[in-house]
Every structure is written in C-alpha cells, then in structure tokens.
Design a protein around this nucleic acid. Sequence first.
RNA 1: GUGGGUAUAGCUCAGUUGGUUAGAGCGCCAGGUUGUGGCCCUGGAGGUCAUGGGUUCGAAUCCCAUUAUUCACCCCA
Length: 420
Amino acid sequence: MAIQTPKGTRDILPNEIHKWNYVEKEFAIICKRFGYQEIRIPVFEYTELFQRGVGDDTDIVQKEMYTFNDKGGRSITLRPEGTAGVVRSYIQNGMSSLPQPVKLFYQITAYRYEQVQQGRYREFHQFGAELLGAQDAAADVEIISILALFFEKIGVKNLILNLNSIGCPECRKAYNELLKEYLSDKISDMCDTCKTRYDRNPMRILDCKVDSCRAHLINAPALLDHICDDCRAHFEQVTHKLETIGIPYNIDRNIVRGLDYYTKTVFEFVSENIGTKGTVCGGGRYDGLVEEIGGQPTPGVGFALGVERLLLEMESQGIEFPEADAPDIYIGAIGERAGQVAEKLTWQLRSKNIYCIKDIMGRSVKAQMKYADKLNVRYTLILGDNEIDSNKARLKDMKTGETKDISLDTLIDRLVKNKA
RNA sequence: GUGGGUAUAGCUCAGUUGGUUAGAGCGCCAGGUUGUGGCCCUGGAGGUCAUGGGUUCGAAUCCCAUUAUUCACCCCA
C-alpha cells in the first residue's frame, strides 16, 4: 500500500484551494478593518505552555495533545489551539508596552489527537483574533462583531450566536460549592466521570450527556443565575451592546467552554447543518490567562474559528466561491524555430503581467488546442513558420471561436490594453 | 476511549447462487490524411480486487484478523 496522509490529515488540492484563499483573504481584510494585526506563532511550543494556559484538567491537555521529547530532551507539543501561543508572544515580546489594547489575528493549523469525523480532523485550520488589555464589555462585543461581519461578508447565514457568562474565579468558586451541595445526595447515583468531576471541577458535570445524569441536573442551579454583581453587570453590558448593533444572540446557560482559561463571557456560533455539534467558532474572555502564563495581570478576549467547518457550512449553504483566474492566452508553437519565438514572446508577456501559458510538450496543434481548452484560456495563438515569416498570427477567441489576424509586434500592447 | 458502515482503475461505481484473460462511465494519452479546442468515433495506458490468513477443486465474492476510511458518542474548531 502506498504511503498515505496520516489519519486525520488531508491534502488541500489545487481544485479547492481557491476556497481557502478566498476565506483567508476576506478574514484578513475584516480583521485589519477592526485594527487587528497579523501575528505568526510557532507550530510547536514547550508543553508547559499548554498545560498552564489551556489547563491541566481539560480533555485537550489530558488526552489530545501531540507531545514528544526533542533531541535535547525538552517536552514539545504541537499547538492544540492558538490563544496560548499568542498570549505567550504578548508576554515574551513586551507587548504590554505597546499602545493598549493590543489587537492580533492569525490563521494557523492546530493539532489534536482525536477520533476523526465530519468537520473534525487531527490537523485542522483556525482563524483567530485576540484583544488584549481591554476589560470593558465593548471589547467582548468587538470580538463578536468581527465574526458577525465576517459571516455577513462571505454570505454565511443563519448561524446562531450562543452566549453565556461563566463568571470570574470568585463567583465560580461560590457556585461550585452551591452545585456540590445540590448534587451531594445525587452524585452516588451518577456516572464515574461525573464522580471524579465532582471533586475536581463540578461545573463540568453540567456537560454530561449520560441520560441518568442529566435527569439529576434538570433543577440544578445555573451559573449564570449566581454570578457576582460585577460579572452580571459586565454580561448585561455585552448583551445590551449586541442589541444596540443589532447582532442577535441566544443565551445558553449550558455553554462551558472546554478550555480552562475562560472567564465571564463565553460564546459560540453554531450551525444546524454540518453535523455533530456544529460549532463553527467559539471564544470568550480570559482575564486570568496572561497572569497564569507569567505576565502582568491583563484582561483578554478572543475567538477561534474552525476553517474546515466554515467551508462545510458554506458548501451546505450553496455559497459560490470566486473562481480561480484562467490564463489570458495560450501560445502554441510548431517546430523548433517557432518554439524559440514562442519562448521569447511568452517571456515578454509574462514580464508585462499577462497570465500566459506556452506549449512545453512539443505536441500536435490539436493536442495543444485541447490542452488550452481545458485550461479555460481566453485566447490562443499558434506560431509556425508562416507566422514568423509574415510576422502575423491568428489570435483565436476561445469563447466565441472567432479568429483575427494580428501583427506580432502589436500583440503585447494589445493584450496589456485588453487586460486593463 | 466506545459503537456502526465501507474498502474493486486517478474519480464515481458495476461485478449476478463462489466458476476462465475483472468491467463501465468520467478523466488521462494518441489517432480520425497535410497546422486549430468544445460534439462525435476509434484505439491505448492504468487494478498483486486494502493487507494477511482460512474454507474450497476454484475466492473480488464466504469466514477471521489487521489496517485504512467514514459516520456517531465523548469532547471540541
């Protein structure tokens, strides 16, 4: 069996690359319009960054990371997401001395060792943005509005914005006690994972999908109803501002993002057509993360968007992508002498920024024309001894089939003019 | 980590109750008289039928294992 891509990875082939180029470009344009600058971070980091940043308790760190020791014996991990690396860079490069807030966006691959299924791969692509240094609800709303505008710009409709607040460490601590109290007489009846969650991270019990566990949770207190005054005020400002701009949202008390660093606002945009849970992107506020990784206390908010899922959603909505450019002209040649002229002509055209393809197989005129047709070129020009002697050639419009005699001297100028 | 589906040419798939040199469409290459694509016609290349065992006189076909892939659960992007 020939070697294939490893499980959960895939090639992005030329026939679909225009889709990727399109969304990448549009995303960058939107981010820049909001004042975000692109940052590129390493594919791998020291494992400790993710253990501290993403959280030792999370599924990602416990079972999904690609971790190995390098030849120097250092523990290295392929990034499972982008935020931790960006925040590390913020600290390492002294960005707290830059004018605040600092606004960054990125387009990365990320790696998680998981079972693959539709819209979930072991190597996947994320677009993300991070806003560091701003604690006001306006920052949360700006982050969300980048996404809303991006979706609007590329024509993606009907994504639902689910919103929740998971409070700050203080109110979460109080809530965890409340939840444990509520569950104290029920936990013995619940699943094993819930039992371990009960001690380590009771909030995650709310996420359990086991029916018998769910039954016990129906009347469980919701975190959103027990956050502190400060967090409540923040959440109300977020919803109020969203209403002001006109971004619809849905409050979902059950969103508990899978990364430990989130505080206060958490959100996700979900689709109903792409299977599984349909999360196209997720994000939230992470006011404790910079400090956790070793920087000065700095508020932050951001998101990550799954590009594979975005493309799935776009395809299921029948959104048309701009086609890749077709060549302006194909230069064919018969024989050695014409080949040389074609060579030179092609070079001149290309240097004038004309998208020009030339025969390099020495094939028959018929084969060359077929090839030109498949490339979807606009014009063809076949050179032979006659053309070179007369300094004229027949330019053929491949759409209409019309031909026109044209002087080789004026060809370049005409094509350049034609293109402009 | 758990459960189900699938695995035949580059792609999409046929292959009858196990029976000779395994097929089609598309794609690719070439030709249909001298130098012009699309339509049509002809020909060609390309498959250890995922891999390894087993049953059988005989296996693409039945059984087992492995691997890959896919969908779902968990969780996430």
